[in-house]
Design a protein around this nucleic acid. Structure first.
Length: 571
DNA sequence: GCCGTTTTCGGCCCGACTGTTTTCAGTCG
């Protein structure tokens, strides 16, 4: 049993309860528990063994029993019963935009429809418009919703999302030169690794022209909905964008509301309620009076807590920390003193060492580690031992010409399928810095690949484990490594783990970063750039680190050079 | 089904937009 399995089952129970019209709060309890369990850093099995499941907020005695039942028998009787009352295939219908549980109930009860195929057939025969509460328009919406569902909405990776958001922003600002305030909100503002849509908040005395301008964004495909103060568009690229326009005095409240996350806001509003207050996107309400906080800082302060940066607003304990004044002082881009993972033309990068050094200096970096691939990675023209020594020589020569800057002679050494490294320890000992990474044998089973990476982690010459889970967002799943074990051993050996800043990787995942930081693991935020242009990716890595609650002191490449050397040599 | 510095029972975030109805329920974020 793992977290993900039980989370999936609880989500199914929640959907079926909704479809069956049971107490919606009961469904929400299951969904909340699923969300909680779905997050990486609780081990349900372990907690179940220790009888500590009820320590998880949202898990009470009933859900504890269900988890224990599943752990013991591999089944959930309750879910089996629900599946008899409502076919579980009905859940598919929830994925269609515009369809909710009430509509599903009617369609199921009156027409016996249980899946997407039957629904499409009925819609095309115009049977749906005969049903109570459904008209021609809803039937049309279902047909186009089915098409959209077939097309499957894509999630945008962070760098694409920022690029599109920038285009929408400049379109609005060009169209409306007087626009007082416009800001991106939603999961993009929280720096999530991928986003499903883009959310904007604007402030204007007269909202109509802003909404109009939004409807004419260059790559809009369809205006999904548009009222006086809100609009939703579907773009040609298959993602949705939302805009809310508020009066200027409500901008901070609206920005906070639309930044989310949903979980964060629900907890926050619960706290407001306990204090006899009500929060909405239109300020803080108390006894019929409305107070509009001027800034988000003020809003949080009014609720009796410290300001919570957007990256932390995930309902993962940040509100409690803010109430107790123990939020982390998050890392920021200016703290980064150098990049410890870049490639040059010596292997599969495109720049010379001089170009890399110059570009790093232009960014204000004090050091840059050149970490080309090792010999086994032929596809990336991995360096032989002789080439490594030549490169070291060249780096020494270049360093003589720098002031306040230093190139570090590094290597990204292969962790071979048997767990050994691609170079002998003698050579590794000569390097300023050693990153060890997996680039082959991704399909190894959990035990094998975990043991493989742990043995690299325990090598005294290895300073950093590169992209520790090997994932490529939207393209390749992480390999089946036991991340808990990885974090534990990294904490013991003092080996750093990489937060790979490439927006295609963002590896390690933010929740694992958080988990690691809690047990004292140190991290390196690196771009893995193969072209100086991609040194800019550091911003995404910093966002990921912030989402993992990282402070400056948790990150080795936020150290000044002398302290970085201390860290490297003390190891 | 969960939860409690008002509560072990009675609450559970809040508002905009749409469509189908004639004042509102359903859906969404």
């Amino acid at each position: 049993m793992n977290n993900w399995e039980i989370a999936k089952l609880f989500d199914e129970i929640a959907d079926l309860l909704d479809i069956l019209g049971e107490n919606p709060y009961k469904a929400r309890a299951y969904r909340r528990a699923a969300h909680k369990l779905g997050n990486a850093y609780l081990d349900v099995e372990e907690l179940a063994d220790e009888g500590r499941l009820q320590e998880i907020p949202g898990i009470g005695s009933a859900l504890e029993k269900k988890i224990e039942e599943y752990a013991k028998t591999g089944e959930l009787k309750y879910l089996t019963q629900l599946r008899k009352k409502a076919p579980t295939s009905l859940r598919q219908l929830l994925l269609i935009p515009g369809i909710g549980v009430k509509t599903i109930q009617i369609i199921y009860q009156q027409l016996g429809i249980t899946n997407l195929q039957d629904l499409e057939a009925a819609a095309r025969k115009r049977l749906l418009q005969e049903l109570p509460g459904i008209g021609v328009k809803t039937e049309q919406a279902i047909i186009s919703g089915l098409e959209a569902h077939v097309l499957r909405r894509r999630r945008l990776l962070l760098h694409h999302a920022f690029a599109f958001a920038g285009e929408i922003e400049s379109h609005l600002k060009d169209t409306l030169p007087g626009l007082a305030n416009l800001q991106i909100a939603g999961s993009l503002r929280r720096g999530k690794e991928s986003v499903g849509d883009l959310d904007f908040v604007a402030a204007a005395d007269n909202p109509a022209p802003v909404v109009d301008a939004f409807k004419t964004v260059p790559f809009v495909n369809e205006v999904v909905a548009a009222g006086e103060v809100k609009a939703t568009i579907m773009t040609k690229w298959g993602f949705q964008a939302d805009l809310l326009v508020v009066q200027p005095e409500f901008f901070a409240s609206a920005l906070q509301h639309l930044t989310g996350s949903k979980e964060h806001n629900i907890i926050l509003r619960g706290i407001a309620r306990e204090q006899g207050l009500k929060i909405s996107e239109y300020g803080i309400h108390c006894d019929g009076q409305v107070a509009a906080p001027v800034t988000e800082e003020e809003l949080y302060r009014r609720l009796g807590m410290d300001y919570i940066p957007p990256e932390l607003r995930e309902g993962r304990g940040e509100i409690e920390a803010a109430q107790n004044g123990v939020l982390p002082e998050l890392l920021n881009v200016d703290h980064i003193k150098g990049d410890l993972h870049v490639h040059s033309e010596w292997s599969d990068g495109i720049n010379t060492l001089e170009e890399l050094a110059q570009s790093a200096q232009e960014r204000g970096y004090r050091y840059l580690a050149v970490t080309d691939h090792s010999r086994s990675l032929r596809i990336a023209r991995g360096l032989t031992e002789e080439r490594v020594r030549e490169q070291q020589e060249e780096i020494r020569r270049l360093n003589r010409g720098f002031t306040d800057f230093r190139l570090l002679a590094g290597i990204e050494v292969e962790i071979l399928p048997d767990g050994s490294l691609d170079f002998e320890d003698e050579l590794l000992a000569e390097m300023d810095i050693v990153i060890a990474s997996v680039h082959s044998g991704f399909k190894q089973d959990r035990k094998t690949i975990t043991r493989r990476v742990l043995s690299a982690l325990q090598n005294e010459h290895v300073d950093i484990i590169g992209h520790p889970t090997g994932r490529l967002l939207g393209r390749r799943d992480p390999y089946d490594i036991d991340v808990d074990a990885l974090l534990q051993v990294a904490a013991e050996t003092g080996t750093a783990l990489e937060i790979n800043a490439s927006p295609d990787r963002l590896d390690l995942h933010d929740e694992y970063v958080h988990q690691g930081i809690e047990i004292g693991v140190r991290f390196a935020v690196n771009t893995d750039a193969h072209d100086v242009y991609y040194l800019d990716d550091i911003q995404y890595g910093v966002l990921q680190a912030r989402r993992g609650w990282a402070e400056r002191s948790d990150i080795i490449n936020a150290l000044p050079l002398s302290e970085l050397f201390d860290w490297l040599y003390r190891r």
